[in-house]
Design a protein around this nucleic acid. Sequence first.
RNA 1: GGGGCCGUAGUUAAGUCGGUUAUAACGCUGGCCUGUCAAGCCAGAGGGCGCGGGUUCGAGUCCCGUCGGCCCCG
Length: 370
Amino acid sequence: MSFGFELLKKDEAGARLGRVTTAHGAFTTPVFMPVGTKATVKTMTPEELEDTGVDIILANTYHLYLRPGHNVIKDLGGLHSFMNWQGPILTDSGGFQVFSLSNLRKIDERGVTFNSHLDGARYTLTPENTVEVQEALGSDIIMPLDECAPSGADREYTVRSMNLTHRWALRSKAAKREEGPALFGIVQGGMFADLRRESAATLVEAGFDGYAIGGLSVGEEKDVMREMTYAAVEHLPEESPRYLMGVGTPEDLVLGVEAGIDMFDCVMPTRNARNGTLFTSGGKLVIKNSRFERDPEPVDPECACYTCSNYSRAYLRHLFMAGEILAMRLNTLHNLYYYTALMKDMQRAVREDAFGDFKKSFFGRLAALA
RNA sequence: GGGGCCGUAGUUAAGUCGGUUAUAACGCUGGCCUGUCAAGCCAGAGGGCGCGGGUUCGAGUCCCGUCGGCCCCG
């Protein structure tokens, strides 16, 4: 297997600089992975992703299994060839859909039975077939099936759910081909710090190529999310990559890196772009607001992206209000550029022993412009 | 000349046999979006019913007149 992680540097607070190697190339961490659920990061071509600085993307097992079907993709040479993205790909297992499509599924020891959100057809995801599907897709990093419990889950439910997730993780590991992709373990444990520690320790004992922290940013308070992150990280090995699943806002990313997280993914930059919210060095900007009707300035005067280099807020607002497809493209391009640039800034800060200063100026600027 | 239909938010319409603060959609304004069921979701503002009379306890709903638009017959 060609997967590897090298920890290049760690600062006193815990922020890390690292390097992940996969079968489809290497990338520096901390890294942000845009979400390309259905084998496309919505509105962007792979070339455009590369140009904005994207290193690795995420795709979804559940969605691709339903359509077009993993065997179709396998027959066409795998996901990389199919979608023309030659960089690393991480696939999520469908575990999040256990949570987000909770009204359409049933969980038992064997796995999760869904009614397809597309046509209602019933089918079952198990730890084993989830691994099989992800291997067929040709993913570089695969995730085991897990249960992402709701934020309000009580301790009894959470313990049961966590233990089930652990058993599924072991079954996933057993199902994986020897020379297959990298497999991460997913720490669960809800909003209970001791369960988070227990979950991390259990998975580390079993041994995985990397460790993800799942089940966060599901509606809990920010400080709870932080506490859970720290509780899990505490028991994760230095020499393995850590992935905080589904997170988050720019502020979350900075705090996550400080907590020692190496990888992140989130729909926020892409979805918010399509819904008219842009991220800037001065905070969020809702481009559809009427105050931008005649604003000739770029979205973020400090941004070097294609959108900011060529178009005014007034034009972007016009495109958005008119429902033009280009609005979503230009907005997505900007947000992804902002996110990847933020990660590169943090990499540089850790490399130069200046992460503390970076964090201070990052939050200072948001506060000053708020 | 005769007959008929239609005028209700910015727009297009719904308003039962007259009965609380006149509906909806789109548009507009604002907010939200965290391992994508998401070009999505939530909320808000906005009209007193073409105009003038009348009947009635009560009129967008009924009657009369009038203005505007459309249609049919001469």
